[in-house]
Design a protein around this nucleic acid. Structure first.
Length: 583
RNA sequence: GCCCGCGUAGCUCAGUGGAUUAGAGCAUCUGUCUUCGGAACAGAGGGUCGGCGGUUCGAAUCCGUCCGCGGGCACCA
């Protein structure tokens, strides 16, 4: 453990120490063990507040006022080294105001390393080969990335993986349409598809296959055959037949498109699990538990989950092929073989929510540990302002690329640089600032706004703070490169009393680890967005009313600016958003 | 029909048991400043927190019920 880490661990415990001290006082005075959780009240009331007196009064059957008075008195003495004020307020709250020294300490604390030593698998994105990457993939990937970042930041070893359908009915549909287009099993004709058009070309085939499947009985039968053919090809390790050549070439095209997409988003996936690799294991596992967990019904193998308040789902269809359910059974085993995870996170759209409950309930019957350490997070759909509905089956979808294009277009309209740093900052922040779960409505225009709660606003706020620091430094060392001569002391001294504006800023800065811890605990990145925006607002207020450069308090204020900029940058990076020094 | 989820200002959203005035941003209106990158700051108007009933010292938050919207409910993923 490095010195910095040790320092952080000590500092981050301050809130815990205060809570423990209050718990001890309660025990001492009333003999009751209460759960003390400090909250952050309105600034006018203090830095922390607790309502334990109200909890105690209830348990003791006493008047809250009576309880709070004796309690506050004891808390005051017990915490005199950290608090400058301890007040009673309202129906029985105790408000605590940190001493300047304690506040300074807290402002250098780091988020908790609560997941140290944990192996964690985070599955997200779930892009499917043989289908197009659409706007929803951008959303789910951005959310997954942010959640994975949180877990990693808390000390976990995170393995980011994608699970995609390289086998299954959609592949049958696409393969069928490709062969229609190529006039048969003629892989050599694939060379005629220009490289740049490959993804779109395959997406069109999928739409044709989907339409034929629904409208034409003959085609439907052929597609079902094509689907089986794909499974056979995997079972036999076939790479040579014309059909197989088409399949492998097109699958490679898909993976190449994924690589480019993830690279652009800055996502570093460790592994693509193709369904073909999970299918056999899933099939085998499900078959082993027929009779005990699964049962046969109408020629299919199903799990009847009604006794658990859920519904029945098919794991093996009447053609003997594993459905998505069985593949998920195989996948969870593969993940465990590969990573021996302590915890597994799966992030998908809400429409998979009840599906996943059934699958996990089935898995719980034979691999309880794997089921119990798996958490499914589901999010809503991405919609565009104006309410465009998207379906890859019908082909009227917004492609992933188009999300980037429309955002870049807005930047150009506003006469601003439309490079990926700002464009992705806008997209990612807009996707992350609302709580995971509900549908989100994306307004490209709002996402790039420099006034308001947006990614570029925070990026700009950071650049502006860096610019102040650079300017101060250049003033001190006009003849040398400022970056190599940064001399602002990192720590504010413990004996420096603050002016109100300075203190407000420092108070907000000190909330950083609490915001990150909350986001990590709940796996909800939006808490970080809310915090960062409030932080930037607090800074603007401070900066409007307090001169930094040239003021007698310059050195102290520069250290505040530096700490503020560091928090902004760290927070943005947790969200997967770059924080450049200049814009 | 059954099962999940959601319903907070004109719009987009925080807040999910606590404190006078339910908070932001955008939009609307007013004011400040010959700017440390004003891409700012200060302020105003705008809300029966979907309706009704209940639990609680205290409910946007918990429970019940109704309404509205979205999703799921056997061989798609």
């Amino acid at each position: 453990m490095s010195n910095t880490d040790r320092l952080s661990d000590k500092l981050l415990n301050m809130k815990g120490e205060i809570e423990a001290a209050i718990t001890a006082v309660c025990k001492d005075l009333f003999g009751i063990d209460v759960h003390v959780e400090l909250t952050r009240p309105d600034e006018q009331f203090g830095d922390y507040a607790t309502n334990v007196a109200l909890q105690l009064a209830k348990q003791l059957g006493k008047n809250p006022r009576e309880v709070v008075e004796s309690l506050a008195e004891k808390v005051r003495t017990s915490l005199s080294d950290k608090m400058s004020e301890t007040n009673i307020a309202g129906p029985g709250f105790i408000n605590l105001k940190l001493s300047d020294a304690a506040l300074i300490e807290l402002s250098h604390a780091a988020p908790a390393k609560s997941l140290s030593g944990q192996e964690i698998v985070a599955e997200y994105s779930d892009a499917n080969p043989f289908k197009v990457l659409h706007a929803g993939h951008v959303y789910t990937t951005v959310v997954g990335d942010a959640v994975a970042n949180l877990l990693e930041n808390a000390g976990g070893t995170v393995h980011r993986v994608n699970f995609g359908g390289d086998v299954g009915l959609h592949v049958g549909k696409t393969m069928w349409a490709i062969m229609q287009k190529l006039d048969g099993e003629t892989p050599e004709k694939l060379a005629e598809v220009p490289e740049a058009d490959r993804a779109m070309w395959m997406a069109q085939r999928y739409v044709e296959g989907e339409r034929a499947y629904n409208d034409n009985e003959t085609a439907k039968a052929e597609i079902i055959e094509a689907n089986k053919h794909v499974y056979q090809l995997h079972a036999q390790g076939d790479k040579e037949t014309p059909f197989a050549q088409i399949y492998w070439t097109c699958r490679r095209w898909s993976y190449e498109a994924f690589d480019a997409f993830f690279a652009r988003l800055g996502t570093r996936l460790e592994k693509y699990y193709p369904e073909s690799e999970a299918a056999q294991l899933g099939l085998k596992t499900v078959k082993e538990h027929i009779g005990s967990v699964f049962e046969e019904s109408d020629g299919a193998v199903v799990f009847k989950a009604e006794k658990y308040g859920l519904h029945t789902r098919v794991f093996i269809n009447q053609h003997g092929l594993p459905t998505y359910e069985a593949k998920d059974v195989g996948l969870i085993a593969r993940k465990y073989e590969d990573y021996h995870f302590n915890r597994s996170i799966i992030i998908t759209d809400n429409e998979q929510k009840q599906y996943m409950e059934v699958v996990l309930k089935a898995i719980e019957q034979f691999w309880p540990d794997l089921a119990h350490t798996t958490t499914h997070i589901s999010h809503g759909k991405l919609k565009l302002l104006g309410g465009v509905k998207m379906s890859s089956r019908k082909g009227n979808i917004v492609r992933a690329k188009e999300v980037f294009e429309m955002t870049a277009h807005e930047l150009k309209n506003a006469n601003r640089a439309s490079d990926d740093t700002v464009m992705l900052g806008a997209v990612k922040y807009a996707f992350l600032k609302t709580r995971i779960g509900g549908d989100i409505i994306y307004d490209p225009k709002e996402s790039i706004a420099l006034a308001g709660n947006s990614g570029p606003y925070l990026q700009y706020a950071h650049a502006r703070a860096r610019s102040i620091l650079k300017k101060a430094d250049t003033a001190r060392h006009p003849e040398v490169d400022a970056r190599s001569k940064a001399e602002i002391p990192k720590q504010v001294r413990n004996d420096e009393p603050f002016e109100p504006g300075e203190r407000s800023l420092l108070r907000k800065i000190s909330e950083y680890p609490e915001a990150v811890d909350k986001a990590t605990r709940e796996l909800m990145p939006h808490h970080i967005c809310t915090y960062l925006y409030e932080l930037a607002q607090t800074f603007n207020r401070f900066y409007e009313h307090n001169r930094v450069i040239g003021d007698p308090r310059q050195e102290l204020r520069l250290r505040l600016v530096e700490n503020y900029a560091a928090k902004l940058k760290a927070g943005l990076e947790l969200l997967g958003i770059a924080a450049p020094d200049k814009m």
